[in-house]
Amino acid sequence: MTLAALPSPTTAVWHLGPIPIRAHALCLIAGIALAVWMTDRRLQARGHRAGLAADLAVWAVPIGIVGARVYHLITSPQAYFGENGDPIRALYIWEGGISIWGAVAGGALGTWIAARRLGVPLSDVADAVAPALPVAQAVGRLGNWFNNEVYGLLTTLPWGLEIHDMSTGRLLPGLYHPVFLYEALWNLGVAALVWWLDRRRRFTRGRAFALYVMGYTAGRLWIELLRADEANTIFGVRVNVFTTVVLFVLALVYFVRTRPKSESVLAGHPGV
């Protein structure tokens, strides 16, 4: 063991009798709960009733989980539908294999459905959830540490990460970029930026959400290029790199085109 290295756990599952308790699932649940609380505070600051975020989450969370899995299956189908693949394992979500892109898309669909049923403007919800989403993502990324996944290329930096083969518990040779940690820290910075600018500018029409998308994708681009795990590519470039660039451009165009003339002189508003 190198003294300067970041350690990684050798187990990510504990058992409460016959029930497996998975660290990654706990991190995801904690992130979702924190995001719901933050969003509810921000919705209340915009004049909506308490508890609205939880009502929206009833639709957004399960559809977001489905979306996260579907995106993974579309972009990495070989283990399930390729040669020697096992299609039934496509249902084994507890084995891992979810994507933030699918989660956000599915969550957005679920939120749209819930907002229509509850009579809430979708733009209000989008702006309220904007700083909460990257916080939830940061907490969820801790689950990758337990799973010894989402690591990067080999590095000699003092914060290089030790990685275990989780099937054997054996330590892999060398140290790796802890890209899950890079993304978690970046996400917290994006959350702080969105929250601060929103207090100053009072974003409306989903512009705070567009700012979140721009901030997240800007970081995800360089982080994605550091990743060493297997992924499908187009012209030798990871599929998620193309997704990142497209989403950044779309968010930027929306943010610029919807900028109101009076935005720069609006005062801040209370709320988290």
Score class of each variant (00 low, 15 high):
Val139Ala: 04
Val120Pro: 04
Ala132Phe: 00
Asp165Val: 03
Gln137Arg: 05
Ala103Tyr: 01
Asp165Ile: 03
His177Asn: 15
Ala130Glu: 01
Ser167Gln: 10
Arg205Met: 13
Thr204Ile: 10
His177Thr: 14
Leu175Ile: 13
Thr156Glu: 15
Leu91Arg: 11
Trp186Val: 04
His164Leu: 06
Gly215Asp: 05
Gly143Arg: 01
Gly102Gln: 06
Ala210Lys: 04
Arg200His: 14
Leu181Tyr: 09
Ala184Val: 05
Asp127Ser: 07
Leu109Tyr: 08
Gly110Leu: 12
Trp196Lys: 14
Gly119Asp: 07
Met166Arg: 08
Ala192Arg: 05
Leu181Ser: 07
Arg170Phe: 02
His177Gly: 07
Leu193Gln: 10
Asp124Arg: 09
Leu193Tyr: 10
Phe180Ile: 07
Phe209Gln: 00
Val194Glu: 00
Thr111Val: 10
Asn187Ser: 13
Gly160Asn: 13
Arg207Asp: 08
Leu157Phe: 15
Leu91Lys: 08
Val150Lys: 05
Asn187Leu: 07
Ala132Asn: 06
Leu181Ile: 13
Pro131Asn: 12
Ala114Leu: 05
Phe180Glu: 00
Leu211Arg: 02
Phe203Arg: 00
Asp165Lys: 06
Thr168His: 08
Ala184Met: 04
Ala184Glu: 02
Leu154Ile: 15
Gly143His: 02
Ala90Gln: 12
Tyr182Ser: 13
Asn144Tyr: 04
Leu197Pro: 08
Tyr92Gly: 13
Ala128Phe: 06
Asp198Phe: 09
Phe203Cys: 03
Pro134Met: 12
Ala128Val: 08
Tyr182Ile: 11
Gly169Glu: 07
Trp112Ser: 09
Ala126Phe: 04
Pro134Ile: 10
Glu162Thr: 11
Arg116Met: 11
Leu109Thr: 12
Pro178Ser: 13
Ala208Ser: 12
Thr204Ser: 13
Pro158Lys: 13
Tyr176Cys: 05
Trp94Glu: 14
Thr111Ile: 13
Leu188Cys: 09
Gly174Arg: 05
Leu118Arg: 08
Trp101Cys: 00
Pro178His: 11
Gly102Arg: 01
Tyr92Arg: 14
Ser123Asn: 11
Val120Lys: 04
Arg201Phe: 14
Met214Gln: 12
Ala210Gly: 10
Gly215Arg: 08
Leu211Met: 10
Ile98Ser: 03
Gly96Asp: 09
Phe146Gly: 00
Phe209Ile: 03
Val129Thr: 07
Val135Ala: 07
Ala90Asn: 12
Leu161Trp: 07
Leu91Asn: 10
Ala108Gly: 15
Val120Gly: 04
Ala138Lys: 01
Val139Leu: 10
Asp124Asn: 09
Ala130Gly: 05
Leu171His: 03
Thr155Pro: 08
Gly169Ala: 08
Asp127Trp: 09
His164Tyr: 15
Leu157Cys: 12
Asn148Ile: 02
Ala191Tyr: 08
Val150Asp: 08
Ala208Tyr: 02
Leu142Val: 14
Val104Thr: 03
Gly107Trp: 01
Gly107Cys: 09
Arg199Ser: 07
Gln137Ala: 10
Leu161His: 04
Thr111Phe: 02
Ala128Ser: 14
Phe203Ser: 01
Leu171Thr: 01
Val139Gln: 02
Val104Glu: 01
Leu175Phe: 13
